[in-house]
């Protein structure tokens, strides 16, 4: 008889603990937004839960989602990557051009190699030349931008038909692109949870000095995080090329993937300073942005209003996290 209230109390404590975890909080917010959206759309006379709508949400979020998952790695390691948008444009072009001449597989290989190389450069500039990540990746972004805009002024290349199916095909209500995103997210989640590299990304982002004193080769960790982040951007470039049927020099910047991916990561509760957070939160952050988008589309709200709401949501979310972190410090 005595054990019961205790168990209840324990469970209550656990629920509160979960609410304090940003990754859980973002899903709660996502759920709330879904409900509110459903009510609003229904009142408006529309239908919220349609296959079309669900597919739309997934389609919209896949590319940003893949980039944001990669960005999560860079941010967790205490860095950040402003070069992803231009890299996406570059890789979409590389993919399309390579496919025009050759097959699908070599094209994908080339794209991944180019991405890895860019990530390597980012990482080396940050660790070996000791340039602040902001400036380093901004500089690399400019370099890519120059190359891309010098060689292309519009869409180029041709993507094979079979590859285009990646962009629009779906299995039941699930688009292939969403599966790709899920695959990337699970892979990175697994990396963070189960590999030494994942552990060390958290350690370096949490406290570089502690990591170093514990024998972690911090430079390698930062470089690896950047390589993986860039590969994710490359995958997003592939996806967008499949969707467009060609490469485009502006597809990355039009989507605002650089700042928006950072925003999605932070919205998901990952600390901008690194060392705290994870992929689950990022996925939630991206979905939240996509659902908001979808609701506004259904309500036919002006697209500029969406930007305003986005900005407010991001700032408010981070303010809430900051407040929680402060409370935690004072009660700990």
């Amino acid at each position: 008889m005595k054990a019961r209230p205790q168990a209840v109390q324990l469970r209550g404590g656990r629920v509160i603990a979960h609410l304090r975890d940003p990754a859980q909080a973002i899903y709660l917010a996502l759920f709330a937004v879904l409900i509110i959206g459903w009510v609003l759309v229904t009142i408006d006379g529309g239908q919220f839960v349609t296959t079309e709508n669900i597919v739309g949400i997934q389609q919209r979020s896949a590319a940003l989602g893949i980039v944001a998952v990669g960005q999560t790695l860079a941010i967790l390691a205490g860095s950040l990557d402003l070069s992803v948008a231009y890299l996406i444009s570059l890789t979409s072009l590389v993919a399309a051009e390579a496919m025009t001449g050759g097959g699908m597989v070599p094209a994908i290989a080339v794209v991944l190699a180019v991405s890895a190389l860019v990530g390597m450069v980012n990482g080396l500039v940050i660790t070996k030349l000791k340039v602040h990540a902001f400036i380093a990746t901004l500089g690399v972004a400019l370099i890519i931008k120059g190359v891309v805009e010098h060689r292309y002024d519009g869409p180029a290349g041709d993507v094979t038909d079979s590859f285009q199916r990646l962009g629009y095909d779906r299995i039941g209500p699930v688009p292939v692109s969403a599966l790709l995103w899920a695959g990337v997210a699970v892979a990175v989640w697994f990396l963070l949870r189960r590999t030494r590299l994942g552990y060390r990304i958290y350690a370096v982002g949490g406290d570089e000095e502690v990591a170093r004193l514990s024998g972690v080769r911090t430079d390698r960790v930062v470089i690896s995080a950047h390589v993986l982040c860039s590969i994710c951007a490359g995958i997003a470039g592939l996806l967008l090329a499949a969707r467009l049927g060609a490469g485009s020099p502006t597809v990355g910047t039009d989507g605002g993937y650089d700042l928006e991916s950072i925003a999605a990561v932070v919205l998901g509760g990952t600390a901008l300073a690194g060392g705290r957070g994870g992929v689950a939160g990022t996925v939630g952050g991206v979905l939240l942005l996509a659902v908001l988008d979808s609701i506004f589309n259904q309500l036919e709200v002006n697209s500029f209003f969406k930007d305003v709401v986005r900005g407010v949501v991001i700032v408010v979310a981070v303010a809430v996290y900051a407040r929680r972190a402060r409370e935690r410090r004072t009660t700990a």
Partner: peptide, 30 residues
């Protein structure tokens, strides 16, 4: 927002960037 709410200024001003460009074109109609 940066000081009183302890939001990193990177995020504060990134959000402000979205809000400003959204708001002004909302007002002028695109």
């Amino acid at each position: 927002i940066t000081t009183a709410l302890a939001v990193p200024s990177f995020i504060t001003t990134l959000g402000m960037m979205l809000i400003l460009s959204g708001a002004v074109f909302l007002w002028t109609g695109g």
